[in-house]
Design a protein around this nucleic acid. Structure first.
Lengths: 333, 333
DNA sequence: AGAATAAATGGTAGCGCTGTCATAAAGCGT
DNA sequence: ACGCTTTATGACAGCGCTACCATTTATTCT
């Protein structure tokens, strides 16, 4: 039971070299003779030395951390983005420092401020909706910044995602092409989820282009969930039973709609089409695979990290990476 | 565009006090006259001062961080635990530093070592399966440690969760009580998911007690998923169609099984019982709510944090918090 | 060979903050 | 009014590391 953890100095003494040499070996930086490296590494193992990152961060004015701000962990989409981030980070020595904003820009701002206090190498956040103070902090600090999921606005530094609006538009077109005319929409609280709103607007635009409109729509006042989708579709159909197809704000909602139809004996696909968004596994395992749009959440996280770490300084040009999407024809619409 | 971020010294100068006074105001520690506090706070706002946590961590030999090691983010259970952790942490000034182990004790060990390099206040990890080196590191460092999900072994410091084995046992008893006799089991790779194995053993113990056994069982070679559940149940039934009830390793798998039955026109609940584990939302939104066991994932995360932060030093007594579970009768078994 | 370059190592000065100890001022009971 | 406690503030060292420069020795080139 030693009195305190060994430091660089201890290792240096044991290996008979200077502290800075040990530091170089640990960080694998600068040129070191092979024999020295081995000797130092042995000393490190012998002492069980673990570098103190706080000291390193202080001395070098920067920590091997990536701040990650996610709106929610309840929506499976964001854990998947996080998984992509993690995967890309795994081999780099950087670690993610997570904050959850609950879709609240003010919370985002507070979390950002406490993330920046660590002097991270980069910040990953979601969407383009930030407070002025958030924008200012991000501008003042020189960290790299990635804004994920949407690409329909000018990013601060990097944007990685897909055009939410265009995805909605293409969904609308696709369904019109399949012969649907009487459209319903089932959504959730879009003050929180701005991207769901963009997709909605895309759908409407496609309908307008074909001289159509939404026959009926209903929005659940709360976050999206399977239960919300189920209940809200039931409500929508109760006052407007005569619909061809219902577009949902996402797959969770659509799967709930599917369950409603099962219970209410509505033949999905023949009587009523259902269309989601995201391409979640759960939708594709239903007895009828859900018609939806696949977004590449995992890749969004992964690519964001890769791009961020390419350079430690913001390039002149803002970068927008379109990860695209595909319509999954499925069997429900 | 100032040359560098303002420091304590800048704030102190502007407010006309010493650095330590500013530090005290920032940390809300020690006694400060109200007028001074206000003056300092004004200076902080004026300069947009953000404390440098690396410096703080170095000076005080400890960071306001909680290291969190999760086996996976793909399994919705762990994002929910993380949500609980986050919720409890929200008001405390601590932040979670996340690592994902992919159910690999060696990866856990590596991640632990890089988490400890930050001198976090506590470490949260999962289960009791650790490498010797992991145990040693945890023992040598004096951080608080919580091991989540299971409570059937001696924890290093704190364990929060439920008896996985007992949950399996009770599930078995419950089903026997409902009159089932010909049991099937559908599982996934339990080298990775040790807890699924414990539940399985619990079920077998209950069956043995009633002089019963598993009529058939099949394990999917990979992580649990809805698709795996669907396929594996199909496989199981193809060579042993004559079962009363199938116990699944968890709800994901069971929901997949439910979908198989829908497609194969098997009347769930009458012809064949299905039983899961976890009590996920998705199971409860099915046309027939899934019979399963509710685990309190969110609470496990939340309580772990609350207990960890009660004291910064490990108490004499190891603490085991049983968050319990409830059988959800449901309609599928 | 001599000059120029590269490789290998070290000395030193902080990075920005907090712990520790010291001190001054204010309240307080008798 | 006197000692005694409480409240409010400051001086200063140092946490463990890395950036920056300097130095020494080996290598290469003309």
């Amino acid at each position: 039971m030693r009195r305190s953890a060994p430091t660089l100095t201890d290792v240096a003494r044991l290996a008979g070299v200077s502290e800075i040499t040990v530091s170089r070996v640990v960080r694998n930086k600068g040129s070191i003779a092979e024999t020295t490296r081995v000797r130092v590494q042995e000393a490190i193992v012998k002492l069980g030395y673990v570098p103190n990152r706080a000291a390193g961060a202080l001395a070098s004015a920067g920590a091997p951390l990536i701040g990650v701000l996610l709106p929610s962990l309840s929506n499976i989409v964001f854990p998947e983005v996080l998984r992509g981030i993690h995967t890309a980070l795994a081999s780099t020595g950087y670690q993610p420092l997570i904050g959850v904003t609950d879709y609240d820009p003010v919370k985002e701002q507070e979390l950002l401020s406490s993330l920046l206090a660590w002097q991270p190498a980069a910040i990953i956040t979601t969407g383009f909706e930030h407070t002025d103070a958030t924008r200012r902090m991000l501008a003042d600090s020189r960290v790299r910044v990635a804004e994920l999921m949407d690409i329909d606005a000018e990013p601060i530094d990097i944007a990685v995602g897909l055009s939410q609006r265009r995805a909605g538009f293409d969904a609308g077109r696709h369904l019109i092409g399949r012969g649907y005319r009487r459209f319903g929409y089932v959504g959730h609280d879009w003050n929180a989820d701005h991207r769901a709103r963009l997709r909605y607007e895309g759908v409407r635009a496609a309908l307008a282009e074909a001289d159509l409109g939404l026959t009926a729509e209903e929005r659940f006042d709360g976050p999206s969930s399977t239960m919300a989708g189920r209940k809200t579709l039931a409500a929508l159909l109760s006052w407007e039973p005569d619909l061809d197809v219902v577009v949902f704000s996402n797959d969770d909602m659509a799967v709930g709609g599917f369950f409603h139809c099962l219970g209410a004996n509505i033949s999905v696909g023949r009587e009523l089409g259902l269309f989601g968004f995201n391409g979640l596994d759960i939708g594709q395992v239903l007895p009828l695979p859900l018609s939806t749009i696949r977004s590449h959440r995992f890749d969004i996280g992964r690519i964001a990290v890769e791009k961020l770490l390419e350079s430690s300084r913001r390039p002149e040009e803002k970068l927008i990476v379109d990860t695209g999407y595909e319509i999954i024809a499925g069997a429900t619409a």
